[in-house]
Nucleic acid binder design. Structure first.
Lengths: 326, 326
DNA sequence: TCCGACCGCGAGAGCGCTCTCGTCGAGAGC
DNA sequence: GCTCTCGACGAGAGCGCTCTCGCGGTCGGA
């Protein structure tokens, strides 16, 4: 094998491969040469067995994956994650946190098959996840609901500030009857964006009662928009909690003959590809989705590397992107 | 460990865990009891090391993942895959087939880190994949372009027949000037749907020249639709090669004031959530996305189990779903 | 000059399984 | 009743790494 070829012991090869500083540069050199020459790739299984870690991390997504992956926002986050992981030699394992047979996933996770986990779109009630945290480092995408302990790591955007900036833009435009289609109110992102909506309106002394709840899907938002229009026909602006939902909203508005932005101005959230796919491009609160994914993976990797002083959370800024809808 | 607890040798425990028939039922019984009692979970790394297989398969997606995952159709396929895998004890590794550093992914794959691979949305020119096939079983989602050898396994839908049924519906409706927004013509799905479009029109003696190419994204389709409308203002029906693209098309039609279905009838392909998310629900050629994913995983698993007589391909039927747009 | 500290490296023992053999006992055949 | 066969199980050798020790050589200080 490599050791013989380089004229050193297997232990030294191991040291070189693992980047130990306790090897003379010239030896490192010759070992690397031998590795190159023999096209050697260390065996992952053997490595795991001996070292007690697996070099792989789990990506845990909610059970109804279609809702998850169908959203370009999440797609971008995943992209960011893989980008970061590609630079390391960690592998991504895709797991579904189906609530039903949680045992199977949980058993898998807890029996040392992954070194850490990335959790996205986590609803309340998944105590499943809390359980996980006792077994390995976990990084959340979006602030977890049960933001209990010091051991909570997550990356998120400032949803409140983002929502405020979006709604403020509507106010600055002179709109006075502003409604919102919220995200699920059992998810922090949904809650925070609603909070920001209220803040901005309170601040301006405007009524904040035109609220309908959506579920981060286009169809759900369409239904919510219908309800809102029925109850508050006088709205002249809408803050929609995600681009994908805004697509549903725009459909209903078109159907009802309400012109955007003339009759109703619309601001949404995400700045995903969905924002520019429709006939009217959306003014939206941009969040750096890919960067968030990247940051999540980065945080987890640093945790796994026993990096001291890893920040517990990474709150990224939003930016209002002006387009046609408002 | 378990062996001691059950009063047998480790070899026998191994046999039981792996379902060998050469063990007496009563022994199986007591070993299983011991496993239950001790909450034993076999160590994956050790197992891999000794047995030379990893119990994990790769899901290889194209580099621009956003395009991939942003499409609800693919989301459903992935869901089907995980559903099947959940029944086994195989794990899914998500890999990106970025064309640039193909070496890294390839090295990973070829050095025994996965037992098999699932490849989706494979463009021409990824000879990268052909390479893969020499190293492990590979199952494609959609007929691969270089459908060369006997060693090609894939599951697909009958895109030609599906397209014919969709276009035929338009003809039956009395439309005589039918155009199409195609998928990428370097992908079999794009090609076949176009072929079906032409077949149906030829059959009916109608002109089949109103063609613009899209790329399976809403934005691309919007642009293509604009071009088409400009070159052929007289079209009275459109066959759009995917729901997501149809969303873009519908936007442009609304913008141009063309009423659907009155002025222009639209039939698309997929029957993904995107088909019902807009203001006008889409008549679409439904393909069993989730089932396809399931079938892909199932095929691969059977290949890995050395199942004799595994069909080389699994062509699933389509079904026209009538909604508002045509 | 001698001693101890320290640094770079090799020897060798596992990590937790699988799998090939070999053994032992029970039933079949004579 | 004796051998022969065959099926169920155990013994034990790896699988390809990592990691702890400890050894030898070098260097600085007294």
């Amino acid at each position: 094998m490599v050791a013989a070829d380089a004229g050193v012991s297997r232990a030294t090869v191991s040291r070189v491969v693992n980047g130990s500083p306790k090897v003379r540069p010239e030896v490192v050199e010759s070992v690397n040469a031998a590795i190159e020459r023999l096209n050697y790739v260390p065996n992952r299984a053997a490595r795991s067995l001996a070292s007690h870690h697996t070099q792989s991390v789990a990506l845990i997504v909610p059970g109804d994956m279609t809702k998850f992956f169908g959203d370009p926002y999440f797609a971008a986050v995943v992209q960011g994650i893989t980008n970061r992981l590609d630079e390391s030699d960690y592998t991504l394992n895709l797991l579904v946190a189906s609530s039903d047979p949680r045992h199977k996933t949980m058993r898998y996770l807890r029996s040392g098959n992954v070194d850490g986990a990335l959790v996205i779109s986590h609803h309340t009630g998944d105590d499943f996840v809390a359980n996980l945290e006792t077994a390995m480092p976990v990084v959340f995408g979006g602030r977890p609901t049960n933001h209990s302990g010091r051991n909570n790591y997550f990356v998120d955007v400032d949803n409140i500030a983002g929502a405020v900036s979006g709604v403020q833009h509507l106010i600055d435009l002179g709109r006075r009857r502003i409604g919102t289609i919220t995200g699920p109110v059992d998810m922090p992102a949904g809650i925070d964006r609603l909070t920001g909506f209220r803040h901005a309106l309170d601040e301006a002394g405007l009524p904040g009662d035109a609220i309908e709840h959506g579920d981060f899907t286009a169809a759900g938002a369409a239904a919510a928009t219908r309800r809102l229009l029925e109850r508050h026909p006088d709205v002249d602006a809408l803050f929609v909690a995600s681009d994908l939902m805004a697509v549903g909203t725009m459909g209903v508005l078109a159907e009802k003959g309400r012109l955007v932005p003339r009759d109703i101005a619309v601001v949404s959230f995400d700045d995903s590809p969905a924002a520019t796919s429709g006939p009217i491009s959306l003014t939206t609160v941009s969040q750096p989705s890919k960067e968030m994914g990247f940051a999540m993976a980065d945080l987890l990797l640093r945790l796994l590397a026993d990096d001291e002083a890893v920040p517990h959370h990474n709150i990224m800024p939003t930016r209002l992107v002006l387009r046609e809808s408002a």
